[in-house]
Design a protein around this nucleic acid. Structure first.
Lengths: 246, 246
DNA sequence: CGAGAAGTTGAAAAGATTCAACCAGAGTGG
DNA sequence: CCACTCTGGTTGAATCTTTTCAACTTCTCG
């Protein structure tokens, strides 16, 4: 009974009762990952997909010479392991960025559910397409945006993603990333991220201390980062209700 | 009877005869796009997905201030429009990089085929996952690789992708991109791409003239770009045969 | 042959990185 | 309870890669 996942899929594809029931019937096992920087390799090779229930994680790639690129940030509601489920092959490396609670669903159970529920399949497919959408937006950031723009853009993205799963409080949210991790996500050096964050603070856009980020002027920050939310495919409450009642 | 698409899906998921028949029964319409730099917007809003039969195209994003980032290069066998098919919403901008022949399949026909063929669904899903895989690799390139490494990496990628659809001839293949377009794909300036290509030529890695690229020392180029092919999910002929006979 | 697009070159400037040192805070052990 | 250590954050200066600008060349094609 992974309500997180049901909510996520529902927001993408508006499930009906049969489909919800099918989802609720999936066997779920909760798994805990204790601290930061724990590789999830062992969890990922055992034929389960995982939904993040609490905490943050990231996919990353290490280059032979030690450089690291963070490929995506994973927040509650995000699904891990669909690539392996569908395509097979190697998992990208994933590591926790905080303590995590995961919901594990056996691949076989999911497989048979999908056999008979094309709409759930499309909903899950959608989650991977949203992931790709985000990857592409990161490509734009890293490829064409300046340092300040990049940071601004990422913070806006995270704010909306977390808001969608009700993890923002006013304009604040938990952001337990070190500046080094931000740098690896943004394709910048740690030092430069540091200076860029100072810039944003000095100009009153954000407060960022002890793992909490507060955005003071979202619209200005969004303008600065040339941020436009549609690539996240988050339906606001109005749209979602409309979809459900139709 | 889109053999291109069947071959593509088969290489990802090994279809059986029923599934092939289903695919062949899809109504296909061939469409031509005459030259370079033609936007495909009109083709994409009319409820068809398209498979590239011949020619090159790319997805891109323009920023408000005129900067452009190319998000992916599309070669024969690649599918366009699955995001819209599954998720709805806006298409990313796509433009031709050469004359194109497209195979158009009506969304409705595909939709009903997928309702009853979960494996075809998973195969199509796979194509979007491979796209994402490539996006992520580009993220690594743009985020962490130097200019030479990036160029080397991209050329290796293209070589293998085109080889997979039998469009390489020896170590040569058609690469009808301008240096400006390469720059937009790689997150570099045109000038710098120019100098980088000269570097690669001077060191005997490649020849690149009149739209044809020749790679003289693939392994060296791959080493230079820290290229490793698995993210492309191209099965070589041996693996494919094994999958079919199983 | 002429015009426009693409490629090439050099020099100056900008943005980001690197290096190295230093500071602040959290957690540990004596 | 306090020094001690470790991690993460901050600072300055030098350096490097890449960009920008502007001019010039070469190629392509009508």
């Amino acid at each position: 009974m992974s309500e997180r996942l049901i909510a996520r899929l529902d927001s993408l594809m508006a499930l009906n009762d049969t489909e919800r029931r099918g989802m609720r019937a999936l066997p779920i096992q909760f798994r805990k990952v204790s601290g930061r920087n724990t590789l999830l390799a062992d969890k990922l090779i055992d034929d389960h997909i995982h939904i993040i229930d609490e905490g943050y994680a990231c996919r990353f790639r290490d280059l032979p010479d030690g450089r690291r690129q963070i490929l995506s940030l994973l927040v509650p509601g995000d699904v891990i392991g669909l690539r392996g489920f569908v395509l097979g092959g190697l998992h990208p490396s994933i590591t926790s960025l905080s303590a995590l609670t995961l919901q594990a669903v056996p691949n076989v159970s999911l497989f048979s559910l999908l056999e008979s529920h094309p709409k759930i399949t499309r909903a899950l497919w959608s989650t991977t397409l949203v992931d790709e959408s985000i990857s592409r937006e990161w490509l734009v950031s890293i490829g064409k945006r300046s340092a300040v723009e990049r940071v601004a853009h990422l913070l806006c993205e995270l704010y909306l993603r977390l808001q969608a799963v009700a993890l923002t409080d006013d304009n604040r949210f938990a952001l337990p990333l070190t500046q080094t991790e931000l740098a690896d996500a943004l394709g910048l050096s740690t030092v430069h991220v540091n200076r860029t964050l100072q810039d944003l603070r000095r100009n009153g856009f954000i407060t960022f201390q002890s793992g909490t980020l507060e955005i003071h002027k979202f619209n200005d920050l969004a303008a600065l980062g040339m941020f436009s939310a549609n690539y996240l495919h988050i339906r606001d409450r109005r749209q979602r209700n409309a979809a459900i009642s139709s």
